[in-house]
């Protein structure tokens, strides 16, 4: 068995909306192991965005345990969380979130700046990452000069560049057409074969089918957790 990377136990995330308490996540128990390739699914309001924020250390649980590589993240302060995000997590967003004024190379270098990698090494690693997503010839292009699929591949390169423990993709194909979506999912498949741990959030069944494990949420609780 591969080692456990993420462990959640009785994890809750509650929001106060005036008088009312909204239980976005209600007592979640779950584990992810290394080289997992999982999809988190659920209708809107099921808590999958909240779960994604907590897995990505963008948010902390109200109660319960969230361990990343054996370290409890729930008690970390903002700067420690920033460090964890930088080292352990590679984000891929639905809206790509590249900085439009910078070329691909600079976009991919960004996480390395925040982990204190010297400029020459930064450039080298960013080039390699872009090469590994098949964009070696687009290094100096700006996002506006690329297609949607290419932009998302730049984002994947950015997620890979700091060699994180997990790649966390939030609706990575939500803004792409079907053919491009399948290209991107093939890419995730390859990355998984190379040993990466990938968690993606989607509401599309045919996208989820590319993964090896599907977790369904409903009303902040796990409805099902199946290997396929």
């Amino acid at each position: 068995m591969e080692p456990v990377i993420i462990r959640m136990a009785s994890l809750c995330r509650h929001y106060e909306m005036g008088e009312q308490i909204v239980k976005a996540l209600d007592s979640i128990d779950m584990e992810f192991r290394r080289n997992d390739y999982a999809a988190i699914m659920g209708p809107s309001g099921s808590g999958k965005s909240t779960l994604m924020n907590i897995i990505g250390c963008l948010d902390t649980p109200t109660s319960g345990i969230y361990e990343l590589n054996g370290i409890n993240v729930a008690e970390m302060d903002d700067d420690e969380l920033a460090r964890v995000r930088n080292r352990e997590i590679g984000f891929v967003f639905q809206t790509f979130n590249l900085l439009p004024r910078m070329n691909c190379l600079k976009n991919v270098e960004l996480p390395l700046i925040y982990s204190g990698v010297p400029p020459e090494e930064r450039k080298e690693r960013a080039e390699q990452a872009l090469l590994s997503v098949g964009l070696g010839d687009r290094i100096l292009h700006k996002p506006a000069e690329l297609s949607g699929g290419q932009i998302q591949r730049v984002a994947i390169a950015r997620a890979l560049v700091n060699r994180p423990s997990i790649i966390l993709a939030d609706e990575p194909t939500g803004n792409l057409d079907t053919a491009t979506s399948h290209d991107i999912m093939d890419m995730f498949g390859k990355l998984s074969d190379l040993g990466n741990t990938i968690i993606l959030i989607t509401h599309e069944e045919d996208i989820a089918r590319f993964t090896r494990r599907i977790i369904r949420l409903r009303d902040g609780r796990i409805e099902s957790d199946e290997k396929q």
């Binding site: 990505g56 963008l58 903002d78 700067d79 920033a82 460090r83 995000r85 930088n86 080292r87 984000f91 960004l110 996480p111 925040y114 982990s115 950015r158 700091n162």
Partner: peptide
């Protein structure tokens, strides 16, 4: 930037 590791 914060998601990618920028501190406060």
């Amino acid at each position: 930037r914060k998601a990618l590791g920028a501190k406060r």
